[in-house]
Amino acid sequence: MDAVVSNFDLYWQGFRMTLVLTLISAVAALVLGTLLAACRVSPVVSLRWFGATYVELVRNVPLTILFFFFIFVAPQIGIRTPSFFVSACVALSVYTAAFVCEAVRSGINSVGVGQAEAARSIGLTFTQTLQLIVLPQAFRTVVPPLINIFIALTKNTSVAGGFAVTELFAIGRRLANANPADVIPVLVGIGVCYLILTIPSGILANWVERKVAFAR
């Protein structure tokens, strides 16, 4: 138990790093994913293909492989990032964007046909229809799945710990190896830190789901 109490500052450091990784990657993935979703519903065939290919490829590759790519392989083909932290953010965003894209797309598809028809019948253009009518409604539907995607992202940041970013998982491994007698309390402490982030988010997702549910 001493190992947990006396290393509280390390826990706090790891917790902050996990949080920062999650927030940066969440914002980046949200932007990239929404752009990809726009590609996937656009009338332009080539963009639709691009979006679909991206999603199919990234969703079917383990996150660990993406990390491996951005940290070990990318430098070999001349793509260098300033630090492991940046590489980790890129890998997490690229991976999560595919899931965000699918959530947003299914949200767009869930908006009633009549909505878009009405928008078109009063003369709105494609962009206006999407921007003023469909997306605001779609976002209400996609918020709960998006929160779930970000919960998964929070847990996925632990992979960064395996690639030289000192977040919670890496701190946990370091402390567990340094204190063989206290392995269980150390790791349970790390687990609790993750649960502090994930369980309230899960409750929030359920609450939002009930709140924004509306009859169509």
């Binding site: 847990k155 996925n156 998982f169 946990g172 190896n177 993750y194 649960l195 899960g202």
Partner: peptide
């Protein structure tokens, strides 16, 4: 269910190895 859903898989693997 709620406990294990909220934890990273890799952490539980590490728990398996070390603990």
């Amino acid at each position: 269910i709620e406990l294990f859903r909220g934890l990273p898989v890799v952490l539980m693997m590490l728990f398996g190895v070390l603990a």
